Simulated assay, not measured.
Amino acid sequence: MEIIPAIDLLNGTCVRLNQGNYERVTQFNKDPVAQALSWQKQGASRLHLVDLDGARSGKPVNDSSIKKIASALEIPVQIGGGIRSVERAEALIDLGLDKIILGTLAIDKPQSIKSLAKKHPERIIVGIDSKKGKVATQGWLNESNVLATELAKYFNDSDIASIITTDIETDGTLKGPNLKAMRSIANVSKKPVIASGGVGSMSDLLSLLSLEALGVTGVIVGRALYDGRVDLKEAKKALGENKLQDFPQGLNSFA
């Protein structure tokens, strides 16, 4: 299982939110490029990048930092946050981002994601952020009536790379992942699933191994890494991601 460190960008700095609340922000590093290079040096095999300003406004705000991070790293970078058009997704692919995470667009224009994934196979990730089983959009500011499991099933016949499932109620809390919610997604999805939200300890990471046979292939970790509750190298070994490397720095409708 792959351990994927997260960097959330807000006003050009590296932060973490508690349960997606923009009023509950903790700043960890004023230099996101330095932080990205640090995760790479510690053995990260990829980086999860979120533009929180973009997620809230729907407009590209942190492109300068995004470009600097992507060009500085040797490892692939996946990005989400405020990517609400096909044009924006393709622009980020052109910038060198490895995978593009689409959430709100998966609800608003699900067929467009299938078309985009067909054009760029294995480059598109569907982000399913949910609360009590229902999908949230617009940077978690709006809740839909769409079931997370139904959204996951819709993309089974597509060319997307994977699904990232985030449980909003546990995200940033360090209280442990919502295994029940993640299992429900993994049970219906034919695509690899990446877990996100709630990881606060090594035991939390180990608990996710019970979902590996269902297709949960990775886990995104944020605050627990920044707080030192989880050591990246130890976590990689514990979850079987043993090939450590030292990289140089440098819908409304489903019809």
Rank of each mutant, 00 (worst) to 15 (best):
I66H: 09
P76Y: 09
A34T: 10
G54E: 01
A89W: 11
W39Q: 02
A36C: 08
W39Y: 15
V50S: 06
P32S: 04
I79G: 04
T26C: 08
R88I: 05
E87C: 07
G81K: 08
Y22T: 05
D31P: 08
Q35P: 03
R84A: 04
D53C: 00
D53K: 00
G82H: 03
L95T: 08
D63C: 06
G58Q: 02
L102C: 00
K59M: 10
G58V: 00
I93C: 10
Q35E: 15
Q78I: 02
A36H: 06
W39F: 15
K30Y: 12
L47P: 11
A70H: 09
N21V: 07
D98G: 07
F28Y: 15
K68F: 03
Y22R: 12
A55M: 02
L47K: 12
G81F: 06
R24M: 12
V77E: 01
L47H: 12
T26L: 11
R24I: 12
F28H: 15
N62W: 07
R56G: 02
G58I: 00
D94H: 11
Y22A: 02
E74F: 13
V61Y: 11
S38P: 01
V77N: 01
R24E: 15
R88F: 07
G20K: 04
K41L: 12
A70S: 14
P32M: 06
K59P: 03
K41Q: 15
G58H: 01
L92Q: 09
P32T: 09
A70D: 10
A72R: 11
L52E: 07
I79C: 02
G96V: 00
Q27K: 14
L95G: 04
V33I: 09
G80Q: 02
R46V: 05
A72P: 08
D94L: 08
A36F: 09
I93W: 11
H48R: 08
E23A: 13
D63M: 13
H48G: 03
D51Q: 03
A91S: 14
A70P: 04
Q35L: 14
E74Y: 12
V25W: 11
N29I: 08
G81L: 03
W39R: 01
Q35S: 10
D51P: 13
I69E: 07
L73M: 06
K99I: 05
R46K: 15
Q35W: 00
I93F: 15
V61T: 13
D98Y: 11
A89N: 10
D31I: 02
A89P: 12
K30M: 09
I93E: 10
Q35D: 08
R56E: 08
Y22K: 08
L97R: 06
L73D: 05
I66V: 15
P60F: 03
Q42I: 01
I100W: 05
S45A: 13
A55C: 04
S65Y: 05
G82A: 02
G82Y: 00
I100Y: 03
G20I: 02
Q42D: 14
E74I: 10
A70T: 14
E90N: 03
T104L: 00
T104I: 01
A89H: 09
K68S: 15
I69F: 06
V61D: 08
S57V: 03
S38N: 14
I101Q: 00
D51W: 03
D51L: 01
V77K: 02
T26W: 05
G54D: 02
A72L: 06
A72Y: 09
S64G: 10
G80D: 07
I66M: 06
A91W: 07
V25L: 12
